[in-house]
């Protein structure tokens, strides 16, 4: 059963490749979030337990690389208006907790598992669409949590164009990742497709 270890190695590789993917300046630096997209694709191909492992690794590494503003908890030392060193060091401002991405990936991976039967039949239309939905939901959830913690529901200009471009890029890349996973399954003798269930259209 080589499929699962190789999926994990590929997931780790996507974090390295991510550093080479530039942002689109015209769409507020929208980019392809390759580790996330790879996870969403792999979570359709892998069983539930493996999906959880992948969700944990993806979320952990994503937060370790990208989460900003991990600050010292200084409860009780903040003065009335938050002035002073404690405020400059970040106390009183709300950072996202390390590990939040694991929860988000776990939930979205469970959602992706729902279309696994269709994916097993070799149909890619809905899985590609679902990768887009999952990417958009992931970004929107992050944004909503940020605004919720801040205490103001404000949608800045360019937010939607950025998130939609991110989503479209994810949907563009996902068929390639699905094909890679199919090839990997074939090489490692892992059964993704049930040939007996494969949908065939012969024109009749």
């Amino acid at each position: 059963m080589l499929f699962h270890p190789i999926s994990i190695i590929l997931l780790l590789l996507t974090f390295m490749v991510q550093e080479f993917i530039p942002g689109l300046e015209i769409a507020q630096y929208a980019t392809l979030f390759l580790p996330a997209v790879f996870f969403f694709c792999a979570s359709v191909a892998a069983p539930f337990s493996m999906m959880l492992v992948l969700a944990f690794i993806t979320g952990f590494l994503w937060d370790a690389r990208h989460l900003q503003g991990v600050t010292e908890s200084m409860a009780g030392v903040e003065d009335l208006f938050g002035t002073g060193a404690d405020s400059e060091l970040g106390a009183g401002s709300h950072s996202l907790p390390f590990g939040l991405s694991i929860v988000l990936f776990g939930m979205l991976g469970s959602l992706m598992q729902g279309i696994r039967p269709l994916f097993k039949r070799g149909r890619l239309e809905l899985p590609v669409l679902m990768v887009g939905v999952a990417t958009f939901t992931w970004l929107l959830s992050q944004f909503l949590i940020i605004t919720f913690l801040r205490g103001s529901l404000h949608f800045p200009g360019g937010l939607w164009s950025k998130m939609i471009t991110d989503t479209l890029l994810a949907m563009l890349a996902s068929p390639l990742i699905f094909l890679l996973l199919y090839s990997l399954a074939r090489v490692s003798s892992y059964e993704i497709k049930y040939d007996g269930l494969r949908y065939r259209f012969d024109g009749r």
């Binding site: 959880l52 944990f56 370790a64 989460l67 991990v70 600050t71 908890s73 390390f98 694991i102």
Partner: peptide, 21 residues
Amino acid sequence: VFVAGLVGVFTFDTETTRQIQ
């Protein structure tokens, strides 16, 4: 196991988190 791991990650202190990052 996933939930246990998640709880473990949420209990990391700032120093540990910074070291990991």
